[in-house]
């Protein structure tokens, strides 16, 4: 097995046999080197090994430029690593697939499709009959709080609403893993908080595996079972921290919880201690 700098998480379902049964994603000695224009190699990721358990909410936290998004793209199959390998359920990842659903900071909605058209796109592509896909999509649109906006075009929606559509669009084709790339990074603080709460309540219903990239310490602690701290140049895993806080989590309770506060302060201190600039949260 690979070197896994992880301790067991509270939120792993009861496992009969140890570790392998619950691991859904295995990242094995992955490095990513980009050639910059000056023909100098830029090491975005250096020897990353990480195992993600099924049903866990895992955040990858780090300053900009630490390669955390690149790591997510490798799991998504959008980028091939320079060396090392990534596996999902034991199979090597060679490209994108409907078992891994991305949600991007830029929303990446199809602007020529309505809200309903966007959400239906995945199921239709997977061969679901139109009527069935529509019914499922309408239910999802309602779940993300956009009932009544089915026939709106993306340009008619605010940033927060667009990200709700993007989430519904990805959930619609039932990926086993959600890959969220700073999904709330482009939103204002108020919208961001509301979407965090809603994401958490949606997630707590069916506990899909989530890989969540962020540079916000509060966001990572609030949402996650496990926080993977990264440092930059080259991008490395610095520390993996289990967040041992009860669920379901309520924001107003959690903010007053000394355990939550301690996680946030500890993580921030660890970033400050390293010689690089801390995370820009």
């Amino acid at each position: 097995m690979t070197v896994v700098p992880a301790r067991s998480s509270q939120w792993v379902r009861p496992v009969t046999s140890q570790e392998p049964a619950s691991a859904i994603i295995e990242i094995d000695h992955v490095s990513q080197i980009f050639q910059t224009s000056a023909r100098k190699d830029h090491v975005a990721l250096s020897d990353i090994s990480l195992t993600i358990e099924e049903g866990a909410f895992v955040s990858i936290l780090g300053p900009s430029g630490c390669g955390k998004s690149t790591l997510l793209y490798i799991v998504g199959g959008f980028v091939s690593p320079t060396s090392g390998s990534a596996k999902i359920k034991g199979h090597a990842i060679t490209g994108p697939g409907p078992d891994r659903g991305p949600v991007f900071q830029e929303f990446a909605l199809f602007p020529w499709k309505t809200v309903l058209g966007n959400v239906m796109y995945g199921p239709r592509q997977q061969g679901v009959r139109a009527a069935e896909a529509e019914a499922q999509s309408r239910a999802l649109i309602e779940m993300v709080g956009l009932k009544g906006y089915e026939n709106f075009y993306p340009k008619e929606l605010s940033g927060g609403m667009k990200q709700r559509v993007a989430l519904a669009r990805t959930l619609a084709y039932h990926p086993e893993v959600l890959l969220m790339d700073e999904p709330f990074g482009a939103l204002d603080a108020h919208t961001r908080t509301r979407l965090q709460n809603d994401l958490l309540s949606i997630w707590e219903r069916d506990r899909k595996t989530v890989l969540f990239v962020t540079h916000s310490v509060d966001e990572a602690v609030f949402l996650s079972d496990k926080v993977v701290m990264m440092s930059k140049s080259p991008g490395r895993i610095r520390e993996v921290i289990d967040i041992d806080l009860p669920r379901p989590r309520r924001r107003n309770e959690l903010l007053l919880d000394p355990r939550y506060q301690k996680y946030v302060v500890d993580i921030e201190r660890m970033f400050d201690e390293s010689d690089e600039a801390g995370p820009a949260s």
């Binding site: 199959g77 994108p96 990446a108």
Partner: peptide
């Protein structure tokens, strides 16, 4: 065309 839009499509199986 935004690369991420194409990635979203690729993830859906296009």
């Amino acid at each position: 065309v935004e690369e991420k839009m194409l990635w979203s499509g690729a993830a859906m199986g296009l």
